[in-house]
Structure formats: C-alpha cells, structure tokens
Write a protein that binds this DNA or RNA. Sequence first.
RNA 1: GCCCCCGUAGCUCAGCUGGACAGAGCAGCGGACUUCUAAUCCGCCGGUCGCAGGUUCGACUCCUGCCGGGGGCGCCA
Length: 564
Amino acid sequence: MAEVDPSARPGDAPQPSTDAGGPTGPRYDRRSMRDVLIPALRDALEALGVPPPEEIQLERPARREHGDFSSNVALVSAKAAGRPPRELAGQLVDRLRAQPPRHVVDVEVAGPGFVNFRLDTAWLHEVVRAVVAAGASWGTSDVGAGRRVLVEYVSANPTGPVHAGHARGAVYGDSLARILRAVGHQVDEEFYVNDRGVQMQVFAASLAARAAGEEPPEDGYRGAYITEWAAEMPAEAAPLTWGEARALLDQEEVLEALDVRFDDWFSERRMVQTGAIDTTLADLRERGVVDDADGAVWLRSTDFGDDKDRVLVKSDGEVTYLLPDIAYHRDKFARGYDLLIDVWGADHHGYVPRMRAAIEALGHDPAAFEVVITQLVRLERGGQEVRISKRSGDLITLRDLIDEVGADAVRLTYLLQSVDSPQTVDLDLVAAQSVENPVFYVQMANARLLSIDRVAAERGLERRPLDEVDLSVLVHERELEVMRSLEVLGEVVLLAARERAPHKVTTWVRELASAVHGFYHDCPVLSPDTPEPLRQARWWLAVAAGTGLRAGLGLLGTSAPERM
RNA sequence: GCCCCCGUAGCUCAGCUGGACAGAGCAGCGGACUUCUAAUCCGCCGGUCGCAGGUUCGACUCCUGCCGGGGGCGCCA
C-alpha cells in the first residue's frame, strides 16, 4: 500500500511563503480560553468577597447542553462562601454576564451549582487557522522543556527474532517517546542488549549443534530460526559472535519495519570490558549496602523496601543479571537524565522493587526511575488462541505479524488500549480490511479528506489563501464537531504524556476520524450546490482536519495511505 | 501465603486531577448513495460500572475487605 509520512506532506504546508515572517492575527494559544475564563472566575469570586480556591477547575462537559466549558468553583467554594452552591453560582453568573469574557455568549447555572460557559463559534474558527499554521506540530507544547528522559524498551535477548510478545512494548515505548517529545521533553530511546551470560552460551551451543546436524542441548533453543541461521553460518564462524550479530541484525531490521528506532543499543558485555560492572559493585560497597555471606555478594535491598536481599555475585564468582542491570542504570543517571522510564513485560514486574532499591542505594531519587509494566497480549486467530512459545519453536515473530497485517495495523492495534489491561488481539480481525477494524476507519478518513484535494485539482478548482477566506460560514454541527475535536489535541497529548498513556491519543484519533466522516458525509465541499465562500471555508477545514489527523497518527507512529 | 494488573452493554474496549441522566465500535433491528471514496452516515435495541462497606455536597473514578481472571514471587534472564 502507498504510505505517506504523516510528518512531511507538501500539501500540509499551505502557509504562503510570503507570510513566513509571522502570523498576522492573534496567535492562538491552546490555553487561551482557560487563561480568559479562570481569571474571570477568580475576579468574580473576589468581588463577592469569597476567597478563591488554590486552583480553579475548568473542564469540558461531556454533554453539549452543558456548554463549551464548565467550572465547579461554586461547589468547591460554597463552604468558604457560607452560602449554598447554587446561590454562589448564581451570583458568579450575574457578575460574568455583566462583563462577559472574550468569546463568551452565555453563562448559566446548572445542576448542583456548575457554572457553564457557552462560546461563540469564532473561537473554533481561530482553531482552524491555528491548526493550519501549526501544521504537523499541532498539539505539541513546550511544558516539558528542559527535562531529559531516557526510555528503555524491548531489550529482548539477542538469541532470536523479536517475537509477537515484544510487539506491545516496542510500539508502546516508541509512541510514548514521540508523545514525550511532543510536550517538549528531550527524549532518548535505548535497547539494552543482554549479550552476556548463560542464555548466550545456550544460544551459541544450539546454533553449533544445528550446524553440525545435531539436536540442540537440553533446555536449548529449538525454534526453526536456529536451524535456518545455522545453515547460513559460515563453518569458520564463532557461533556466539556470529549468532549475536545475526540476531541483532534481525531485530533491528524488523523493528525498523515498524518504524521503531533506537538512539543506542546498549551492550551488557561492553560494561564488562569498560569495568562499569566492577565500578558499580565498588560504589555499592563504598556506600555500605553490600554484604558478603554464604560465599556470595548481596545487595541489602531490604534497606530500601525490597522484601529480600538480592545476590549480586554468586558463590561461583559469576555475577547475576542484577548487577549489570544496576550498572546500566547507574550509567543512565551518570549521563545526566532527569527521568528514566523502563518498559517491561508483565513477567518482570516482581523485579521492580529490587531495581528501585538499587537505584536508591546508589543515592538517586527513586522517583526519577519509573517502570511501565505492559500486560500480556493474547493472540487469537478466529477465536482460537495462538500460543507464543519459544521452546516449542512454534513462535510468531514480529516479522510474521507485520507480514500478516501490515505495520500500521500492528501499531494502531497495540495502541488501541491501555497497556495496563491484558489485551486480546484477533489476527483475522486486524488483517481484515473491514469495518470491524479501527485502523481502516481512521485511514479511510484521511484518504477521503485527501480525495477532496485530488478531485479539486482534476476539476481545476482553486483554494484561495486562508487569509482571504471567511471561516464564519462554518456553523454546521458537523463542521463544529471537527473543530472541537481538533481543538483538544493539545490537552490530550499533555494527558497522554503525563499518564504515559499513548492510547489516549488513539482514542482521540478515532474521535476525530468519526467527526471527519460525519463532516464528509453531510458537508460537501466540491459540490456545485455548495456556494463558493462556503466551499473555500469547508475546504480549509478539510485541510486542517487532515493536518490534525496526521499529527495524531504521527504520535502513534502510524501512517495513512493517500487513497484506499 | 505475599506482590502487580484487570473485572463497565451479548463481544472488544474508552471514561481526563472524583462531578451533572455511564460512552464508542462490533453484533442485532430499521433507514440514507444521479454528489468529494456507502470501507461511510443516521436511528433503535442493549448496562444494579464484579460484590459489600467507607470517605465526600457528589464515587465507574479515592480507601478497606471479599469474589473472579491473568501474571509474578530463584545464587534463571
């Protein structure tokens, strides 16, 4: 399918180059309505002699009848004001009506004492201009500026292909990084390579066995890929070195097919060579959090909230997996990150307390270390569970998954719901190009919007510069819905970033797509029946909608074909 | 036994720092194409938000205890 890069579409840069110096009108600020309404409420409270609460809350009512913005100050401040919520709300409304804030056409008391604001449509028309001006950066902000964040994810062992079980973490981690960047954080992404230890030995032995035409050792790797790779392996190659390189190549390739790229693939073995592991142990000793007992070296993690102490060096002299992991995280902090986010699978959650303890033991703020646990994904095909088992060799690789349903579908599907909940994915459904598949619903919305430009070009119709177009004709409910949806992206992104919840962006994208389909259905742009001024305005709304849609999709790392 | 996640419509899931009569898609039923993509749109049907307490002016949302499902509790990674 023809894919487009959502972040770079020529048609999305409709700003006349002559205008590049700066927007002429008042610059739209995502928080502008808040910045208008909250102070207005505060002033009104003070005028009534009521001390305003620390934070005045302003929310978007779920129901249209409740206006565009709503505040619960009257409920919150009723006690302090010494009068019933509705009475206080009524007094606030009187004051606000006397001097209505910008764009406010009505203020009213509702329910138990809410103050509801109804706005004119001009503020939404400003949104269209703002989206067009922002282009692919619509929805971004700089609230997180200056914070350096490192997101570590996937980190699969270099002993085989990335399998379907890793896919959720891969897609989640990548999208989270995009979203954190969108709010201004400086984000790096890393893949930790466990290229040392027993697993690697077993892997090498398995490869060598297959190469020699023998069965892999007991507890060895039996996947079909071992046989395939063994056949590729030159006779003189060292199985461990060659095998690791082969695995990493495979992993990097398939992750790139998903548009998942890392700033660094951090090698565990490298830390042995640089002495980082020894240094870390010495550091821990110096801090007095290490005990020698039973011939082993222990981290006294119970001092930092863990339920038992943990072995760092086994009695046979080998280090456990824990010590290099600690060394890696020590290194992360040494590189100056303010926040470390690790994305782990559900099977590793028991490991969180010891890692957190180790970080605290090293003198770091444990709050600067966050672990997101992704719950398991159950794969089904036609209602039958598909087992992902490395042992049996019957494993579904990420590559299989991409081949079967496509990269965009893989990404959007995994980003459909919170990683906190276990997910069931029916492969037949995801592969199906049907209404049951949200991926196609969203991509269809984009394709339809783009078809307007295409058909217009065929008919020789011209879109006039936005500066010359009067958007005040956009009053159809379908048009308003699109604008309202576009307007909230910034807030959605902030929330998604704060809660580490990319699926909130997915939900938003689906909502916008729904609004777009409704608009497309009821508000013809190119029809001869549409008067020219309205056509121009709708056309620009379509441009803005496409821009917003692709901005959202860009945060999910999902592209959309130009036509379907 | 202890720890983590989940339990919302027949199914798959949303539900923002607690807010106004709980939302969407699919499935079911009934409508809408001489028009820029009907892969769409509209309407109807459908829920004691697992159960029981508590906090609050107000709880799907916070707290406690149960019940059910998944995952984890190694000198394995």
